[in-house]
């Protein structure tokens, strides 16, 4: 008998493949039509999808509502920007964002994990506001203007290189990068450690009696999510050439939560679908009204009321059944 949770994760992988195929088609179309705008927009959707992935690890798997995940995303962006301005090396920027994500995740986790529930949400919110304000007022980081002048970076893979100013190349690279973050998260969530996070969400009070220190497990989940957010943020200055304080603001954190809930919390791939969907809606609605936030707000309410498990909450069980039937026959 195959594990039900493993089976659900496989269904997510099938849906990830569908998205990958769509992405490749989109890239081919963009290449043929010599598009820049939509490829860049789609790249941005994937980068923010990485942030949503981090939120889903906390919200959908560990049962923690973070209202400040953008802090780690923004820190990753600033760290990468600072490194790239000094030395335009992708791998150096990547390494710096990785270390920054782990360290700030540990610090933030020590603070936020002292409390639960609403208080956890408020503390994560507060920490992000404080850090955002500090950056906003730091002249050497460009203050309210943000850190501009991030150079074009050549991402060297030995056999070939991708330049961040090549719309198709950088889109494909971002797809592979966020795809790797997704696969790492999916792998971890299917290990005994990952199941422990799922257990924390289901019933935190029983976890200690299974022989685990619940607070440590929660901290580990927090660090993992911080690292994924930071690594996602690191791509932002490569795409846009700057990092701005808005990346750390509540709008960014809140948007990531909306993305996860719309896409389907606790499905992982829902984070990416949600991000793509919201980006499409924003750019479409934004073309005929400035008030796209109203539309997003109404859409979000409709999702919460009619699709409480999000888009993937509807689609994934259907794929699961398909998979189950296939293994049985």
């Amino acid at each position: 008998m195959r594990d039900a949770l493993t089976n659900s994760m496989r269904a997510s992988h099938v849906l990830a493949l569908v998205l990958l195929a769509a992405g490749l088609m989109f890239a081919a179309f963009g290449a043929v039509t010599n598009d820049t705008f939509y490829l860049r927009l789609a790249t941005e959707a994937l980068i923010f999808g990485g942030l949503a992935l981090a939120v889903d690890i906390l919200l959908g798997y560990t049962g923690l509502l973070s209202l400040g995940q953008a802090m780690f995303f923004g820190l990753g962006a600033y760290v990468a920007a600072v490194v790239l301005i000094a030395i335009p090396s992708f791998w150096l920027a990547f390494g710096a964002a990785l270390v920054a994500g782990i360290l700030t995740g540990l610090i933030g986790g020590f603070i936020a994990n002292r409390v639960r529930g609403v208080y956890f949400a408020l503390i994560t919110f507060g920490m992000a506001q404080v850090v955002a304000k500090v950056i906003y007022n730091t002249r050497s980081l460009g203050a309210s203007d943000g850190l501009i002048g991030v150079p074009i970076v050549k991402i060297n893979f030995g056999l070939f290189a991708v330049s961040s100013d090549n719309p198709v190349g950088f889109f494909l690279f971002t797809m592979a990068y966020v795809g790797a973050l997704y696969l790492i998260a999916a792998y971890i969530l299917d290990t005994p450690f990952g199941r422990l996070l799922i257990a924390l969400k289901a019933n935190e009070r029983r976890v200690p009696f299974l022989g685990y220190h619940a607070t440590s497990a929660r901290l580990a989940a927090y660090v993992l999510a911080a690292t994924i957010a930071s690594l996602s943020g690191a791509l932002y200055p490569m795409l846009r050439g700057f990092a701005s304080p808005e990346l750390l603001f509540f709008a960014t954190s809140g948007n990531a939560v909306i993305t996860v809930i719309t896409g389907g919390a606790g499905t992982l791939i829902g984070a990416i679908y949600g991000s793509v969907l919201l980006t499409v809606i924003k750019s479409y609605v934004g073309s005929w009204t400035e008030h796209h936030l109203i539309v997003i707000g109404i859409l979000f309410m409709l999702v919460v009321i009619f699709l409480p498990n999000g888009l993937m909450g509807v689609v994934r069980p259907w794929v699961e059944k398909l998979l189950a039937r296939k293994t049985r026959s």
């Binding site: 008998m1 594990d3 039900a4 949770l5 199941r195 799922i198 257990a199 969400k201 289901a202 019933n203 029983r206």
Partner: peptide, 8 residues
């Protein structure tokens, strides 16, 4: 763990 399968 009420939201998880018996086996889990």
């Amino acid at each position: 763990f009420f939201d998880l399968p018996v086996a889990e």
